[in-house]
């Protein structure tokens, strides 16, 4: 499908680290494999012969559907990670993400209340971190995952400095 980006033209996006794919893969494995495994249990039980009240077609279709869904998500992960981007402009930070459901977010530096950096166990192993911006609005939800640790630290300092310089009230 030809996709046209919704973000304003003429912006050079910085991409997140390709290693973030690994983080997403681990998350995917935790979520989807467990779900598929659990949903396959009725099929196993019927095959072994412990259960006989589950219709065979139901026992097959439900985990199969979940499996297809999981594989679909798996295929999308690298493209989703490539779609994440951010750009520092003079007065605001742009964050984009998503392939099917695209989102482009602009956060003015003067509106930032604080900046978070979070590191999960897998991210720590790969030397990555997640940067999160908070404004007075709960709906902002500005997150840049998969940043290299030094880039995250640099961005945090940069954003804090720019936020202090352009601080506005509510």
């Amino acid at each position: 499908m030809p996709t046209e980006a919704i973000d304003p033209p003429g912006i050079s996006w910085l991409r997140v680290s390709p290693k973030y794919v690994t983080v997403r893969l681990v998350e995917w494995a935790f979520g989807n494999l467990i779900a598929v495994g659990l949903l396959s249990l009725p099929l196993v039980f019927t095959l072994v012969g412990w259960w006989d009240w589950v219709p065979r077609w139901l026992a097959i279709t439900v985990p199969a559907f979940m499996l297809v869904l999981a594989v679909w998500r798996l295929v999308l992960i690298p493209r989703q990670v490539r779609a994440i981007g951010y750009a520092e402009r003079d007065d605001d930070l742009l964050i984009r993400g998503g392939i099917f459901f695209q989102r482009t977010l602009v956060v003015p530096y003067g509106r930032m209340q604080y900046v978070d950096i979070g590191v999960g166990p897998v991210e720590r192993g790969l030397g990555l971190c997640t940067l999160k911006l908070h404004t007075a609005s709960a709906g902002t939800n500005a997150e840049i995952p998969g940043l290299p640790a030094d880039e995250g630290a640099r961005l945090r300092e940069q954003l804090s400095a720019r936020g202090a310089a352009r601080l506005a009230g509510l």
């Binding site: 919704i6 099917f100 459901f101 695209q102 989102r103 602009v106 609005s137």
Partner: peptide, 8 residues
């Protein structure tokens, strides 16, 4: 505060 463009 901030803005976002969404497109499905």
């Amino acid at each position: 505060q901030s803005m976002a463009l969404h497109q499905g």
